[in-house]
């Protein structure tokens, strides 16, 4: 049984608890009644001065008050928390169409992206990835590729020649890496070599004097045209993620014999009828990659026994593939270093 004074404290406290509308008010009620100097605290403090016969009752009263008030406060706190969660879960003012806060981002150049994709495909098939100089010797760019001085084929490559050294030029293709590979690697081997190349062509939306190619070279015993076809089909299947018809037709490149042009059925209109679109210039074929069986003279230049070993080589138009991949309509953007272009990748 509580004394009337204790009942008064209890009632006042419970009223305060009921009235507390937030956690802070509740804490204040807690302090006022249960704190060191609070009403219950004072009862507890008064015990030591009380006559012994009253001490027990005071102690019981204080504990009872503590339990009742503490329980009420705890209950109220739980209720307030639950209310707060409900309030927090409200969707007032939520607008999913508000754009996200701006994010500074970076990007890899599309040429890098496609190069990496190709490197991934070819290295999974055991191709080494090689590098070669952009300023190249005539010996490697032409001579060892079976294009001696005065060979009319030199005219096919609009070469940038260096001043002061007639043997120095900007490589017109990645093919000189073939020779460097033959000199350093022991057959059998498979290798690719991506990189920039240069031809003195007038620049327009589809021509750049600086462009990217990726050379491929496979040398071993019993390498055949069939392997070349297989390698090309496999890589195209990976890049375009489906089977695309290809065709090989004769093409003349002095460092291969036989030499081919590889065309791929235009992936942009292959499923349409009638076929033909602006990408393939209505021919339904896209010329993608000169290739062929390595000329025995090239193997010999590279110090490889052309009787024992055969090989195939290809020169993928990387810039062209990048443009196809991303639908880029103007090759000049690739070397333009314009953020408005780069930010899109």
């Amino acid at each position: 049984m509580l004394s009337p004074e204790a009942e008064a404290i209890r009632d006042e406290a419970l009223a305060g608890v009921a009235a507390a509308s937030d956690v802070a008010a509740l804490a204040s009620v807690d302090r006022t009644f249960l704190g060191k100097d609070g009403a219950v605290g004072q009862i507890l403090a008064s015990i030591k001065d009380a006559p012994p016969e009253k001490r027990k009752q005071l102690g019981q009263e204080a504990n009872a008050l503590k339990q009742v008030i503490g329980g009420a406060i705890e209950e109220r706190r739980e209720a307030l928390r639950a209310e707060a969660l409900v309030a927090e879960r409200a969707s007032d003012g939520f607008d999913p169409t508000l754009p996200g806060a701006p994010l500074q981002r970076g990007s890899l150049h599309p040429v890098t992206q496609v190069t990496r994709e190709l490197q991934g495909i070819f290295s999974s098939m055991g191709y080494a990835i090689l590098d070669g100089p952009e300023v190249e010797l005539d010996d490697y760019n032409f001579e060892a590729l079976n294009i001696p001085a005065d060979h009319p084929a030199r005219e096919m490559y609009d070469t940038f020649w260096c001043k002061g050294d007639a043997n120095l030029l900007l490589r017109t293709h990645t093919s000189p890496v073939q020779i460097r590979a033959l000199e350093t690697l022991e057959p059998p081997f498979r290798a690719i070599a991506p990189g920039r190349c240069f031809r003195n062509e007038t620049v327009d939306a589809s021509h750049e004097h600086t462009f990217h190619q990726m050379e491929g070279l496979v040398v071993g015993e019993g390498i055949t045209v069939g392997h070349l076809i297989g390698a090309m089909k496999t890589f195209l299947r990976e890049v375009f993620r489906r089977d695309l018809e290809i065709r090989l037709r004769p093409g003349f490149f002095p460092f291969v014999e036989p030499g081919f042009e590889l065309d791929v059925r235009c992936p942009f209109c292959a499923e349409k009828t009638p076929r033909g679109c602006s990408v393939c210039k209505r021919t339904t074929w896209i010329e993608l990659c000169p290739c062929g069986m390595v000329h025995p003279r090239v193997l010999a230049f590279g110090g490889v026994d052309a009787e024992k070993y055969t090989g195939f080589a290809f020169g993928l138009g990387l810039s062209r593939l990048v443009m196809l991949r991303f639908g880029i309509d103007d090759i000049r953007h690739l070397m333009g270093a314009d953020l408005r272009f780069l930010e899109q990748f």
Partner: peptide, 10 residues
């Protein structure tokens, strides 16, 4: 670092 990769002419 959030930089954009560019290619420029030789």
């Amino acid at each position: 670092a959030r930089f954009h990769e560019a290619l420029t002419h030789t």
